[in-house]
């Protein structure tokens, strides 16, 4: 038996919005640790890893480890039927052919339940090695979203260069080129800060299409963290307060 109750149900709605453009079908892993997912996009260029820790739920029960395969577009259709103020409870029994989403309005005067059919999904669970990254950038998530969106109107790829002076985002396209530099800035409110931790300068190029998909997680966190090392996938992490994270990995473009 699996049961997880989330008073701030809108969080689950936002989580789903942050992954459904990247992945069509995915296995959610339920354990005593929490509600987790690891899935790659169909072209194996990016990966999303989600963790909602069990202690972040108001009630959490997982009698044995379960994998629940869901079509994320269908899951999203159901979660969109929950109000933003609703409490959401997920339930599944051990036979595991359906998951039930129960929505309770804040006044408890409306209770809905939606039953989603589960599916068998072959998934490749990748081992992601622990890495010391050469550069870590923390910046406002809205700023990162704005930069990715703006640059994608000029070019298809972005070159991200981190040095002690700042982080530079550059693109080139048919109409011209663009460079945006964010300098380290620790003088403002914590959520507005840009912080650079640097072992050594690093420059990598990525497809903007994927980074734009990642920024669907912006409503989940005021800050985003980028971690980069030479010729390694970038890690783009959004921390979900008191619950866990949505973390994306994107393989770089590599010169022949």
């Amino acid at each position: 038996m699996f049961e997880a109750r989330l008073v701030q149900g809108s969080l689950l709605k936002k989580v789903l919005e942050s992954i459904k453009d990247l992945v069509t079908d995915a296995n959610f892993d339920c354990s005593n640790n929490g509600f987790a997912l690891q899935a790659m996009d169909s072209s194996h260029v990016s990966l999303v890893a989600l963790l909602l820790r069990s202690d972040g739920f108001e009630h959490y029960r997982c009698d044995r480890n379960m994998t629940m395969g869901m079509n994320l577009s269908n899951m999203s259709k159901m979660l969109k039927c929950a109000g933003n103020e609703d409490i959401i409870t997920m339930k599944a029994d051990d036979t595991g052919d359906v998951v039930t989403f129960m929505f309770e309005s804040p006044d408890q005067d409306k209770i809905s339940d939606f039953e989603l059919k589960l599916m068998d999904i072959d998934s490749e669970h990748l081992g992601i090695p622990d890495t010391e990254y050469a550069a870590t950038v923390k910046m406002p998530s809205s700023e990162f979203m704005r930069i990715c969106r703006d640059l994608s109107s000029i070019g298809d790829t972005v070159t991200i260069s981190v040095s002690k002076d700042g982080v530079k985002f550059s693109t080139t396209g048919d109409i011209g080129q663009a460079n945006i530099t964010c300098r380290q800035n620790t003088s403002v409110d914590k959520e507005e800060q840009t912080i650079i931790e640097l072992q050594e300068p690093v420059t990598l190029t990525f497809a903007l299409r994927y980074l734009n998909s990642f920024t669907k997680a912006t409503p989940l966190a005021p800050t985003v963290q980028l971690q980069m090392s030479k010729e390694l996938p970038v890690v783009v992490q959004y921390l979900i307060a008191d619950m866990g994270y949505v973390r994306y990995y994107l393989a770089p473009k590599i010169e022949d």
């Binding site: 790659m40 990966l47 490749e124 990748l126 081992g127 992601i128 090695p129 996938p233 393989a251």
Partner: peptide
């Protein structure tokens, strides 16, 4: 030009 790398060349498969 630059080639898109696959994640599978960085992370260990099942």
């Amino acid at each position: 030009g630059a080639e898109q790398a696959s994640l599978l060349s960085f992370f260990k498969g099942p």
